[in-house]
Design a protein around this nucleic acid. Structure first.
Length: 828
DNA sequence: GCGCAAATGATACC
DNA sequence: ACCGGTATCATTTGCGC
């Protein structure tokens, strides 16, 4: 039979001794379907030069080893003319029965004296299958094959709760519409945060036109979405039943890899319930890595937190990736505010909780799933477009880092270049790479502090990607000599300047990168004609993936690792930004600042039209893949000194454009580890100064804030300083205020750990001069109104944030703040 | 015990 | 361990006196 099919989830299983790939997905008509198929597993052996290939092959073919209850043996060996890192190689393609045998066989073959190298030994079988059969996750395929009946499956010991099971003969990519999955969001509430320690009190599930909360905490007049059960065991069973009824393609949580699913599993074990959510009735499995992920057969478990944290966070304004912050920014909705600490305490003590409180708790739980569901809908274009670009399964892509995505985009496209992939680095190799010192990166121009008028900002569009393409920078094109090569000078790997050469013949990685950029150009054009979330997501995916290649080259875990490439890219970056500065000044403009790929300049009485004309001239001289463009014109801008020393501070400036919109970089206003009062005040005075061109009203404003601070009129919440705990408490060498507070929280039994945001307020000390700030830091809850140390906030928050700005206007610190002594004198 | 520079740590820029 | 280097700044820590 023939069907049209969209693969969503992938796994591999042994059926009658043979490794098979199972693709779970939907037919075009929306039926749930499992397509079973396979491909021949293999890896590569590269022989040393001058070996007797015939004898070598015979030796390889004889490999047979009892391993894990079965014989690992070589099925076939074929000689192929391949390429490896751009060089032609004669390689042996070693076919085996089962992908698991590769580990055994490659180790034996490695010992043979004829073996130079083994390759593609670490490819996942699903990835191998996707590459070999040209399957594209989330896209429509024509599948021709044999339908397997229930009884046929049972004889093979398979249970699959889907509408249709097909053993494929062939699978072919088709053009098809966008696929819209059935998403089901969920969220649990437990009495203790530590996994398995407490009980699961509630679970909520939300899908299209579906909302449900399951709980064993009863209360009267419950809304219709709430379903009461007897106990935790029934809760878990009801949860399972709901998923089975809803039949989602994806089960979506927020931090569910790290919390909800492991918790459910722990409690299911405790209650002797199987957490068998898989379509093959298998239990949820946990894939151990640095961060564990939870997998359900046939249903893609998506932990939205991971996707947001890894992929989406760069485009967010939000300073945190909490569900509340992200939902607020992306869908304009927030969590319900509930005192979780209080509720969990009451549940633990088995107190009778007020009905109204329980009701609110249930709605809180439901709201979390609603937010997760809406976020999942909103982010689906990003997840699915990235999946389609990279060709890896949705499960992997939704948890992937950019390095993984870049690498897989490359490996999934090697076939057309006849390339064999390098291996993933070994543990030792990684350790060695980590030892490497830093190479020279980008250039940053030191600005002259001051207030400037009529400013333009120019930048290179995608500087590093365009350099990689223009200079063909890749480990495969890096060559020893200067023959037919592009030279890159002044590459500094840490000690001395060197020159590297890259072949003129385009290599596969720059070709693939160019392809990403070209696709993006097309997408951008389409977007101009008609906006669509899918195109916008594709644009974002193509852009971020292109930008990640440079960092990938210098990443110690990369297959295509090359510091030489990374350092060559930055060297060229420095060359072009210097060149741009030089040309801009030569044309009569005045460059005032620059960082990596862009510059700020004063028009120097020249017109905007002249600036644009100048850009056109510059572009004529640039390589065709590079472009220098206008970001915006600005009415005014301020550059300040460093707080220590008179020189201009880099990465710290504020500009205001013609429409009055500010662009603030590096100032305390944009740093989350300064208190709200400081941030709001600095933002305000920067606005005043940039709009008015003078600091009179800003000075008044600042003095007023100081007065309010001293008269204790500032709210504690505006004085709380937030700092993230970035390692576990014991690991700190230096105990700063936030670490001291974290310890305090731990003693109080409050949840703290790596990643926690620690909030503290500084209170008045006991008068000892040598008292450390950490000794005066308290949790905001512990500080009563007006209980803060006003002088600390003036000296350590307000003054540091305004001092350098007022210095631009020749206003000294003494004019901003009169010392406490002076004030007291004046009071008399 | 004081004053200083160095070390540590967090966060931002591109 | 899950992309890079450059940069600022606060606070603590360690050292010499």
């Amino acid at each position: 039979m023939q069907i049209e099919f969209i693969p969503i989830d992938f796994d591999s299983v042994d059926i009658e001794g043979k490794s098979m790939v199972r693709m779970f997905g939907r037919t075009k008509e929306g039926k749930s379907c499992c397509v079973i198929d396979t491909c021949e597993p293999y890896f590569w052996l590269i022989p040393k030069k001058k070996v007797d290939i015939g004898k070598y092959i015979e030796k390889i073919k004889k490999i047979k080893m009892l391993h894990a209850g079965r014989y690992a043996e070589v099925v076939d060996v074929q000689i192929k003319a391949k390429k490896h890192m751009g060089k032609e190689v004669k390689a042996l393609q070693v076919f085996v029965n089962n992908p698991k045998d590769i580990t055994v066989i490659k180790d034996i073959a490695k010992e043979f004296k004829e073996t130079e190298a083994k390759r593609e030994i670490d490819f996942n079988f699903v990835t191998r299958y996707i590459i070999e059969k040209d399957v594209k996750p989330l896209r429509l395929h024509a599948v021709e094959g044999k339908e397997l009946s229930k009884s046929e499956l049972l004889t093979k010991d398979i249970v699959l709760n889907v509408d249709l099971v097909i053993q494929a003969n062939s699978i072919k990519l088709l053009d098809g519409d966008e696929f819209k999955p059935k998403l089901l969001a969920f969220d649990i509430e437990a009495s203790e945060l530590e996994i398995g320690k407490g009980e699961i009190v509630m679970v909520s599930l939300v899908s299209d036109n579906f909302e449900k909360v399951i709980t064993w905490k009863h209360f009267p007049d419950a809304p219709k979405e709430i379903e009461f059960v007897k106990n935790e065991k029934e809760l878990i069973e009801k949860f399972k039943e709901t998923i089975k009824k809803q039949k989602p393609d994806c089960l979506v949580g927020y931090f569910s890899d790290g919390f909800d699913l492991p918790y459910l599993r722990a409690r299911a074990d405790e209650n002797n319930v199987e957490l068998d959510l898989g379509l093959d009735e298998s239990k949820v499995t946990f894939i151990k890595g640095i961060i564990t992920s939870s997998k359900i057969t046939g249903i893609v478990h998506v932990d939205l937190f991971k996707f947001v944290d890894n992929i989406i966070s760069p485009m967010l304004q939000s300073e945190s990736v909490s569900l509340n912050a992200v939902a607020k920014e992306l869908i304009g909705e927030e969590k319900i505010k509930v005192d979780l600490g209080k509720i969990s305490k009451e549940i633990k003590k088995e107190n009778k909780i007020k009905d109204a409180e329980l009701r609110k708790f249930a709605l809180y739980n439901l709201q979390d799933s609603i937010l997760t569901y809406k976020l999942a809908l909103q982010l689906w274009p990003n997840i699915s477009e990235m999946t389609k670009i990279v060709s890896e399964p949705l499960f992997n892509v939704s948890r992937a880092s950019y390095s993984y995505l870049v690498e897989n985009y490359i490996t999934h496209n090697l076939k057309e270049f006849n390339e064999i992939s390098p291996n993933r680095p070994t543990y030792d190799k990684i350790a060695e790479r980590k030892e490497r010192g830093k190479y020279t990166g980008a250039f940053v121009f030191q600005p002259e502090p001051g207030l400037y008028e009529d400013i333009a900002v120019f930048d290179f569009r995608s500087l590093y990607p365009s350099i990689i393409i223009s200079y063909n920078i890749s480990p495969a094109s890096l060559q020893e000599n200067s023959k037919d090569a592009l030279a890159v000078k002044d590459v500094d790997l840490g000690n001395k300047k060197r020159t590297f050469y890259f072949s003129k013949k385009r290599s596969f990685i720059p070709i693939l990168l160019k392809r990403l950029i070209e696709s993006r150009k097309k997408v951008k054009q389409e977007l101009k004609i008609k906006h669509s979330p899918i195109l916008a997501a594709r644009d974002y995916g193509l852009k971020t993936l292109s930008n990640a290649l440079y960092g990938y080259y210098a990443f110690f875990g990369a297959r295509y690792y090359s510091v030489e490439c990374a350092a060559s890219i930055t060297s060229l970056g420095r060359y072009y930004i210097h060149k741009a500065i030089e040309e801009t000044n030569k044309a009569g403009f005045g460059v005032i600042y620059g960082d990596t790929d862009g510059i700020a300049l004063t028009l120097n009485k020249k017109t905007e039209a002249q600036a644009i004309e100048f850009l056109e001239e510059v572009n004529k001289k640039l390589p065709e893949d590079m472009e220098f463009e206008l970001e915006d014109f600005f009415k005014r801008g301020i550059f300040v000194t460093k707080r220590t020393g008179e020189v201009g501070a880099k990465k710290k400036y504020a500009l205001i454009n013609k429409k009055g919109k500010m662009k603030i970089r590096g100032f305390e206003t944009v740093r989350r580890d300064w208190c709200n009062l400081t941030r709001m005040m600095q933002d305000h005075i920067l606005g005043q100064v940039l709009k008015e061109g003078k600091a009179d009203s800003a000075l008044e404003y600042t003095k007023d804030i100081i007065k309010k601070l001293r008269s204790k009129k500032i709210l504690i919440e505006d004085l709380a300083i937030q700092t993230q705990l970035r390692k576990s408490i014991e690991d700190y060498v230096s105990i700063g205020p936030h670490v001291a507070i974290a310890k305090r929280m731990q003693e109080k039994g409050l949840p703290v750990g790596i990643g926690s945001m620690i909030e503290y307020v500084v209170i008045e000390g006991k008068g000892k001069n040598n008292e450390r700030i950490r000794d005066k830091a308290r949790l905001p809850d512990e500080v009563k109104e007006g209980g803060y140390d006003a002088e600390y906030y003036i000296d350590h928050q307000i003054v540091p944030a305004v001092e350098t700005i007022f210095n631009v206007f020749d206003i000294a610190k003494e004019e901003i703040v009169e010392s406490k002594k002076q004030k007291k004198l004046g009071d008399f």
